[in-house]
């Protein structure tokens, strides 16, 4: 196999990795906020359910969760799971990362001084306005470093999609390495992950800089 072929084959995997990455973020970043707010619900039952969800998502391996999401419908209900592979992967990643993001958001929300809330209430802001106009913008700034960490972890975690036979870049590296008895594919994959994460750091750095106008 020529180096060009190797690169071209793996490029397809990189695109797939990127697909899981982007869809996971698009799903989990907003869902995490919903979860974080439900965790602060005034209904004890809701809080307990959300707490259990977060514990399970964080307390079990993502690989296992992916297997459950994909095979679960068949084993539990006997449903056909044809065509379910990619949705299951995205579902598994989104639900897992939403749990982590939720805890980051919750920490961020709780770190905002209570005086901010009180000032807004006295000025007549509604609950929604207080959250959207006063609390959330400050939360975003505070959680940026933790979010960056999590996003970088996600870039590397995408390789777990191989569990459900998703031919992402790391699966391809393993396969080509096996057939070519060469370490080069792993090297290529390594460079890919590094470059992707460098881009993430750079992008998040820009956002942090934009938010740096106040302290």
């Amino acid at each position: 196999m020529t180096f060009q072929t190797m690169l071209a084959t793996m490029a397809v995997g990189m695109l797939r990795t990127f697909g899981v990455f982007v869809l996971t973020l698009l799903g989990s970043l907003p869902l995490g906020m919903v979860v974080a707010l439900l965790k602060k619900s005034r209904f004890a039952l809701v809080r307990a359910l959300v707490g259990a969800y977060i514990s399970i998502m964080r307390g079990t391996p993502l690989m296992l969760q992916l297997l459950v999401w994909y095979f679960g419908p068949y084993y539990l209900f006997g449903w056909s799971i044809s065509g379910w592979r990619f949705p299951a992967i995205v579902l598994g990643f989104v639900l897992n990362y939403a749990a982590y993001f939720a805890e980051i958001y919750r920490g961020g929300i709780e770190s905002i001084p209570v005086g901010q809330n009180e000032a807004a209430v006295v000025l007549g802001y509604s609950r929604t306005q207080t959250f959207m106009r006063i609390v959330l913008p400050q939360v975003v700034k505070r959680i940026m470093p933790s979010v960056t960490n999590e996003v970088i972890t996600l870039v590397k975690d995408t390789s777990l999609a191989f569990t459900l036979a998703y031919q992402e870049v790391f699966s391809l590296a393993k396969q080509i390495s096996a057939s070519q008895t060469s370490f080069m594919p792993f090297l290529i994959a390594g460079v890919f992950y590094f470059v992707a994460n460098y881009a993430v750091e750079f992008g998040m750095g820009l956002i942090e800089k934009v938010l740096d106008y106040y302290r």
Binding site: V12, L15, F18, G19, F21, L26, F86, V90, Q167
Partner: peptide, 14 residues
């Protein structure tokens, strides 16, 4: 742009 990359990637699934 980012989203369309994602869709392109999932179009060619497993």
């Amino acid at each position: 742009l980012v989203a369309s990359f994602g869709l392109a990637a999932c179009g060619s699934s497993s």
